[in-house]
Simulated scan of single mutants.
Amino acid sequence: MALPRYEQIAGDLRGRIVRGELRPGDVLPSEREMTERWRVARATVVRAISVLRQEGLVESRQGDGTYVKQRTALARNAGERYRTAVKTGNIYTTGEHADILSAERLPAPEPVATALGVAEGDTVVCRQRVTFEGQTPTAMSHSWFTETVADAAPRLLLRQRIREGTTRYIEMQTQRRPTTGRDWWSARLATDEELTLLQLTGPAAVVEVRHVAYDETGEPLAYEIGVTPAGRWARSEEYALNV
């Protein structure tokens, strides 16, 4: 089911903010521009902007338009990063970079084997990274791939940044396009390793997101476990409650 038009507009603007296309202090397109572009009533645009205001992403100034607020701490999941890569050719937004800590073949632990559809102990490839905004670590992750995928995408085994993102890179190498994804979210205390890599003072809470990307046939392309410090906002979704 398609999202309401106001949520589509809010989602488009939110994505541009998250990707860094609209930066703190930038003014949003005028209500008139958005009504013409989206072919909707002014009330629909006003409602979309209200959603972003409630999320703390924008602020309206009387008689002067609506502006992107100073950088809100955001948690960008794997799906959002893939959309950024497709749109811009670069998985990282302005000011972001990643350190690749490892890229190696390992026997698949049971959760990884289940997610990738292989047998426990089969050889898989794992990449571990820490993502930074400036000098501040904002996330760490482990990304896992089958040996078949890694054979077709050899840069997965290099300790070098893949600026277009691993999922986008795999798509270009294999022609297998990710069409669906599934996320599992949980909150817990950080491990000792996470405290160190994310520069947190323990005990500290983190959010863990487990993500699987599937191709057109329903076969898994990648499995990622991402961890972010608590207090960062994720992209919001609207859904029906009366189903």
Results as ranks from 00 to 15, higher is better:
residue 97 H to M: 07
residue 29 P to V: 01
residue 29 P to A: 05
residue 71 R to C: 00
residue 129 R to L: 09
residue 78 A to K: 02
residue 11 G to P: 04
residue 75 A to S: 14
residue 39 R to F: 05
residue 34 M to G: 09
residue 115 A to K: 04
residue 128 Q to H: 15
residue 13 L to W: 06
residue 11 G to A: 08
residue 64 D to F: 06
residue 82 Y to V: 11
residue 56 G to R: 01
residue 27 V to C: 05
residue 124 V to I: 15
residue 39 R to H: 13
residue 65 G to S: 10
residue 62 Q to W: 10
residue 53 R to P: 00
residue 20 G to V: 02
residue 101 L to N: 09
residue 28 L to R: 01
residue 29 P to F: 04
residue 72 T to H: 11
residue 57 L to D: 01
residue 35 T to N: 02
residue 58 V to N: 00
residue 125 V to N: 05
residue 71 R to H: 11
residue 26 D to W: 05
residue 37 R to G: 02
residue 72 T to V: 14
residue 22 L to K: 06
residue 90 N to P: 14
residue 51 V to L: 09
residue 116 L to Y: 06
residue 24 P to V: 00
residue 55 E to V: 01
residue 59 E to K: 03
residue 59 E to C: 00
residue 85 A to C: 12
residue 74 L to C: 10
residue 38 W to G: 06
residue 112 V to L: 05
residue 35 T to D: 04
residue 48 A to C: 06
residue 113 A to Y: 10
residue 22 L to P: 08
residue 47 R to M: 12
residue 90 N to Q: 10
residue 123 T to A: 15
residue 128 Q to N: 13
residue 125 V to D: 03
residue 39 R to M: 08
residue 109 P to F: 01
residue 129 R to H: 11
residue 62 Q to F: 14
residue 33 E to Q: 14
residue 108 A to K: 02
residue 70 Q to R: 13
residue 89 G to H: 12
residue 49 I to E: 03
residue 56 G to H: 05
residue 119 A to M: 08
residue 88 T to G: 13
residue 108 A to S: 09
residue 121 G to H: 08
residue 104 E to Q: 15
residue 21 E to A: 15
residue 26 D to Q: 05
residue 11 G to S: 14
residue 100 I to F: 03
residue 14 R to Y: 02
residue 91 I to A: 15
residue 79 G to N: 08
residue 99 D to V: 15
residue 12 D to K: 03
residue 59 E to V: 10
residue 18 V to Y: 13
residue 53 R to M: 03
residue 59 E to W: 00
residue 78 A to E: 15
residue 54 Q to I: 00
residue 29 P to L: 02
residue 76 R to F: 05
residue 87 K to E: 15
residue 24 P to S: 07
residue 41 A to E: 14
residue 24 P to N: 04
residue 95 G to M: 05
residue 13 L to T: 09
residue 127 R to P: 13
residue 21 E to D: 15
residue 34 M to A: 03
residue 9 I to F: 08
residue 52 L to H: 11
residue 41 A to C: 01
residue 120 E to M: 10
residue 18 V to I: 14
residue 49 I to W: 00
residue 45 V to I: 13
residue 37 R to E: 14
residue 83 R to F: 07
residue 10 A to V: 05
residue 70 Q to F: 06
residue 33 E to T: 13
residue 37 R to N: 05
residue 32 R to P: 01
residue 58 V to S: 01
residue 91 I to D: 07
residue 46 V to H: 08
residue 45 V to D: 00
residue 65 G to I: 02
residue 119 A to S: 15
residue 19 R to I: 00
residue 52 L to A: 08
residue 40 V to A: 06
residue 56 G to I: 04
residue 53 R to V: 03
residue 78 A to G: 01
residue 120 E to Y: 05
residue 97 H to G: 09
residue 32 R to F: 10
residue 32 R to S: 12
residue 129 R to E: 12
residue 78 A to M: 10
residue 12 D to Y: 12
residue 45 V to Y: 04
residue 51 V to D: 09
residue 99 D to R: 14
residue 108 A to E: 07
residue 88 T to H: 11
residue 96 E to D: 05
residue 25 G to F: 03
residue 110 E to P: 13
residue 59 E to F: 01
residue 74 L to N: 03
residue 117 G to Y: 08
residue 102 S to T: 14
residue 65 G to C: 09
residue 72 T to A: 15
residue 118 V to N: 06
residue 88 T to F: 10
residue 104 E to H: 13
